[in-house]
Design a protein around this nucleic acid. Structure first.
Lengths: 216, 216, 216, 216
DNA sequence: TTCTAACCGAGACGGTACGTCGAGTCTTGAG
DNA sequence: CTCAAGACTCGACGTACCGTCTCGGTTAGAA
């Protein structure tokens, strides 16, 4: 199917791969995605350009993998005992707490999301990746599948539990409910319309759970 | 303040400007934003490159203006009687209907938004512009100010009317309420997580107005 | 014959013409002929580009006229009493002295030529004009006709006088004889093979007059 | 000293180099030096512009090398037995004949030079190179060193031999004597004052050897 | 003296070429 | 074979000037 003969991944240099990840993330952080070039990554990583072209189809793909690797390593570090953790799930393996108080649990998690989005270190690569995915459908699909969906699945789980506990309408679709919670944060972050704060996260939870219409 | 002396806009060639708009939109539609080049736009428009560089700082800025012009012309055409319409407000001058039934009115408008977002003709340039704005803060601010904010203001107006009519909680912040309605649509469209349908729009309105928690 | 209607030279702005001469000479002196542009001359002269294009066909033509004007003004200044001097003859109207001693007279004039060629102020424009004339036959012809030939004619006159005085072989062609004297200086100056000095000029006169072969 | 790191000349593409020579000479011959552009050479040679900019600093330098290469190949072809011939000496390795008759030998060689200068094929590039050298001192020096000086050295050799044979004044400087012979031809050719013929070459030899003054 | 046709400064225009950058491919030599 | 290195073709970048054109504003010479 593939017209190019696939390289033999068993002989791949691990040292080069990591150096490329590091260089890619560093350069995107320093100069932005636009100004980051494959040549620049290769030079910074002390690697031939061909080594990048051999293993990745595009600059975006390199950054995506570098990003996944970063998330996996961060997760590894945060929970070294979880030796069996799947490094592909984007660090989402810990789930949303269930204290019985849905609103409180959601606020906790959404506040953490707000902090993560406001983290200046992650901002540049995340924006770059998201923007690239918006324009490039293939890359976007990979982004959603590998990074976004695993995270969203956790919400589904928690919301279903809430439904069983009678804290959520039985007829509410958890998938759509989750979007009501998540999308406003994403919206503010992506489009920079207004500042993204903890208070905003709290308000979103309150509005979404309680509804906007007055109680009859 | 500006290091370059500004050209004399009174002598600007209107014919060139329109040709550039047309070429830019056509090329982005045909080949995508990435593959569209300033050289290509100039060639297609029958214009010297310098004429583009003289009036716009970047490819994204050209596309933005072309897009605004498109919206303005579309609005003009839709309502030729509104001879005094401000061509800068992105076609948002007509407002959200107020039949007294807030949910119905919102569904109407959000369904129209869904259709607009799904319009394949507008898709490529809109995605390109949005993605560019996500990465380039300056451009993003312009995008929000010139295109998004005018639209959102209409929601604020309608929601405030609903508040006065007792159809919306008096303590709800219309600006945030609007985000609860709009953001989920934008989210699905931008990230292509799930299909964006009329049914989805309806559900979002129901959930947002009614809340997710069960009635006590 | 000319497809373009000729401009009315009686309405020509003298102030502009002189400003263009000055600017052209100054810029060629400062930055060299290559880097001197019509736009640059116009800007420096405080003149519209069209004013240059109206009166001259090329940058070289501008410089040529500027040069002729310079020579004429220099001549005017050197001999203000010669109020009727033709400003087109390149300052050559004074002739070669005739003291009766041909060798001495030639050495005097050739030494002056050496000094003129070594004058750093005249060097850049003269080289530029000459080089341009070497490549562009039309301009070269003009250069020869307006600047070179008048000078050479003086030599012919002097050499003919010498012939009549019996100081030059009666069968020698003055035109060719003159080239034997002038060309070596030009050669060294143009090609920069070896330094161009008074001693060299003297030697050339001696060799040319006396011949290279030993006296039998 | 050089701010740019030099490329590795051992990996240089010979095919590209030759294609560039051919394209440069062809274009200069067809359209003249002025109208020949680096882009045009690259396109004609089927080569990236960068490959030209990598190895040469200017259009003139390209043409110079192409010219030297042409001369070298012409020499190689003319004397394939001379397998050790230095390809840098501009085809000057054959010397000036020495039949014992200095005037005849010089006339022979100068007539050949006249023919060469009048060869329409060589004219355009030679004029271009010379003119460029007149304005650009660095290039001029290279021109003189690589092309002119080797040729002139042959005259010095022949004239010295004549001196030893008593056919030339013992006190005559061969270097200056040579200029007396060569410069008039160059002068006519460069400045196009009068036609450059065999008869002229003969006359120059006669005048230069015999002197212009009448025998006492 | 007023009209009007030209020249004038200014500079936007459609173009061409510049010299640079980076993409993606290909080649070489070392391990 | 993979790898670092880097030369290659190609195409777009943003800039500099070209020579033409158009715009008010001056400025004569003809009415």
């Amino acid at each position: 199917m593939a017209p190019h003969k696939a390289p033999d991944s068993s002989r791949r240099s691990d040292r080069s791969r990591r150096a490329i990840y590091d260089a890619a993330l560093a350069l995107v952080g320093e100069s932005g995605y636009r100004r980051t070039t494959i040549e620049g990554i290769a030079a910074r990583a002390g690697v031939g350009k061909q080594t990048i072209y051999r293993w990745w189809p595009s600059k975006a793909a390199v950054l995506m993998e570098a990003f996944l690797d970063l998330a996996a390593r961060a997760a590894e570090e945060a929970a070294p005992q979880a030796h069996g953790a799947d490094p592909q799930d984007g660090g989402a393996e810990y789930g949303i707490p269930d204290t019985g108080d849905l609103a409180a649990d959601l606020k906790l998690v959404l506040r953490a999301t707000v902090d993560e989005l406001n983290d200046p270190l992650m901002e540049a690569p995340t924006r770059a990746l998201t923007a690239e995915g918006i324009v490039d459908a293939k890359l976007g699909a990979e982004f959603v599948e590998k990074l976004l969906d695993p995270q969203l699945a956790l919400y589904v789980t928690r919301l279903r539990a809430a439904q069983e506990a009678g804290q959520l309408r039985p007829d509410a679709d958890p998938r759509i409910a989750l979007e009501l919670l998540i999308a406003p944060l994403t919206h503010r972050w992506l489009l920079r319309t207004l500042p993204l704060t903890h208070a905003y996260a709290d308000t979103i939870v309150d509005y979404a759970l309680g509804g906007l219409a007055p109680r009859s």
